[in-house]
Design a protein around this nucleic acid. Structure first.
Lengths: 210, 210
DNA sequence: GTCTATACGTAGATAGAC
DNA sequence: GTCTATCTACGTATAGAC
């Protein structure tokens, strides 16, 4: 009776997604090592054993989640590149979108952070992050170069600027872990992008102390 | 025979420090949960059991290390405030020092990162980080205000600028975990501080798209 | 003060019932 | 497809020898 095979497939997809959502939530906060499968099962409202029916082990689930998060970010940068319009506006819009996404659902950013910070160099996750990061960085660098051609961004090494932009984004995502942090004056996109803007000239380069 | 009591105290201090150094190294890379006491004992070249002779449990050691790292950072900002001279130069110098320290021994920054990212809100470490962060942020904000009075920093909310500066610093410290990362164009202090500088005027605020 | 050996708990992963 | 029960491994923390 292959009658319910379609239905079954749908159930399978749903459960898998359910587990991934729960996993994202927990992994993002506690990291791989501190997360117990029982935590995920509880968050997903299903039994312990079922998680192993859908994922071979904890690492496989973690890896799948990190990759999804990376794909999302890479996709954002790719879209910004393809779109028409002024490069500076696309850049501004991209960064605003990233910041907004990070504040709305920090989990995607936090799980990448977890992977970078806690996983040993050479591990599968770490390699994965490195691979995607390269693409993200390259896209962003290209976009910055275009904005520089328009004269909207100061002519500093574009790769350096892209690197800084990404580092700042990640640094800001850390603040999303804290629920209570003192004054929490989250910077505006305008402030964050100020350092890209061209300056007329700075004449105080001469008197820098040791 | 209290003859060797002085000597013993010195040995005790040495061992304790030895364990802390090893603990810093391992915790900074793997985080609290993934770190085994045996890792630390191995890194310190002493036996497993001895660690428990000097620290009640893993958490106590971890907490001590996080606090030391936080004290160091807080101290840097406090010194920068007390020092004489132009505020802008003290600010520039402070940030350069922080960046240099982060690149030389990333462990102090990474362990703070670990504490923020992986520890649950409300935990002892998390509270500790919050307390120190407030002081660090306050000092930096004060310094920025002084630089604004000198006209060396754009008149944006000083707290927002301090927040951004700290977030960027932490974001950059993440890159120190990777040994291979692709182009690794680490930004210069000049680039990082660009966004603080006063701008003559920007007249393209008008045409921002959705 | 420093070590090795052991007890205990916990979490990952599997087996088998429904 | 989903659950509960169990096996197993490992790591924390302690006890006791040197």
């Amino acid at each position: 009776m292959p009658r319910s095979s379609r239905q079954n497939q749908r159930i399978k997809d749903e459960r898998r997604e359910q587990i991934m959502q729960a996993g994202l939530k927990v992994f993002a906060r506690k990291g791989l090592a501190a997360t117990k499968i029982s935590d995920i099962a509880a968050a997903a409202n299903l039994s312990y054993g079922l998680v192993y029916h859908y994922f071979r082990d904890k690492d496989e689930l973690y890896l799948a989640l990190v990759e999804r998060a990376l794909q999302g970010t890479l996709h954002l940068t790719a879209v910004a590149l393809e779109q028409p319009g002024a490069a500076w506006e696309r850049l501004r819009s991209l960064y605003a979108e990233m910041i907004a996404g990070m504040r709305a659902t920090p989990e995607y950013y936090l799980i990448i952070l977890q992977a970078q910070v806690s996983e040993p160099p050479g591990s599968a996750v770490h390699t994965l992050v490195g691979r995607y990061s390269e693409g993200i960085w390259t896209n962003l660098t290209t976009l910055i170069r275009q904005a520089q051609d328009e004269g909207e961004v100061e002519a500093i090494d574009a790769g350096e600027l892209a690197f800084t932009l990404l580092a700042t984004l990640q640094g800001l995502s850390i603040s999303q872990t804290v629920d209570n942090q003192i004054p929490r004056i989250f910077p505006s996109v305008e402030t964050l992008l100020r350092f890209l803007r061209p300056s007329i000239s700075h004449d105080e380069d001469s008197h820098h102390a040791d």
